[in-house]
């Protein structure tokens, strides 16, 4: 564990907590894409399949449970909670996210480190996570400005993988044989997809306006 990865995990945790806070306290998911949340639930479900078979640390297992629990709870809230469900913007959240799942699965079947069931699904989760934010970014463009909590959620979610990139650079220089091109490229693509969001988000900080 290094400071970059810890900061990355804490940023990721913060993004999930901000979203749960928004949905649970003000009972609203306005501006939040259910499709992105569904993709993230699939990402965690396929990435943490080894949660019961390979123990790394208490921290690792705890965080996996938090991410699994929170992502599925958010989907449940947005789909079935009567108050929250009413605030979901169904007409605008129309990105065909299932069109993202299949190509990621095919790509995982073609490009992976080992051809085993767990490894292919784990690789699939990496590719899917890289594009999972797309429905949210499209929804953001359609609904124009968004509330602060949703903006902070997206900012933290984009930032965590950027910190992971610093972690991979650090581990590459400090650990022999630490080379994972698939993870690195997927993480880089994921972070680059947030580039224009970060640009407008920082403009907001500088200009003091809402996220246009």
């Amino acid at each position: 564990m290094n400071i970059f990865r810890l900061a990355g995990d804490m940023t990721h945790l913060a993004s999930v907590l901000v979203l749960l806070l928004k949905i649970h306290t003000i009972k609203s998911c306005a501006g939040v894409s259910l499709r992105t949340q569904e993709l993230y639930a699939i990402v965690f479900a396929t990435r943490y399949l080894d949660i019961f078979t390979s123990f790394v640390s208490v921290y690792n297992t705890f965080m996996k449970l938090v991410f699994l629990g929170s992502s599925f709870s958010i989907v449940w809230y947005m789909r079935y909670h009567k108050a929250v469900h009413r605030t979901y913007d169904r007409e605008q959240d129309t990105f065909r996210h299932w069109f993202l799942v299949l190509p990621c699965l095919v790509l995982a079947l073609l490009i992976h480190e080992k051809f085993t069931f767990l490894e292919v699904l784990w690789t699939f989760s990496l590719y899917l996570e890289a594009v999972a934010i797309l429905p949210q970014l499209v929804l953001l463009q359609r609904t124009r400005n968004i509330d602060n909590l949703t903006g902070q959620y997206i900012f933290l979610l984009g930032g965590y993988r950027g910190l992971y990139i610093l972690n991979w650079i650090y581990r590459y220089f400090t650990e022999p044989h630490f080379v994972h091109w698939i993870t690195w490229i997927a993480g880089l693509v994921q972070t680059l997809l947030y580039a224009d969001f970060f640009y407008y988000y920082f403009l907001r900080f500088i200009g003091g306006r809402g996220v246009e």
């Binding site: 995990d9 790394v56 640390s57 690792n60 044989h177 080379v179």
Partner: peptide, 10 residues
């Protein structure tokens, strides 16, 4: 052994 290392990242 690079491939057999545990996946220690989230």
């Amino acid at each position: 052994e690079a491939n057999n290392e545990k996946k220690d990242e989230l």
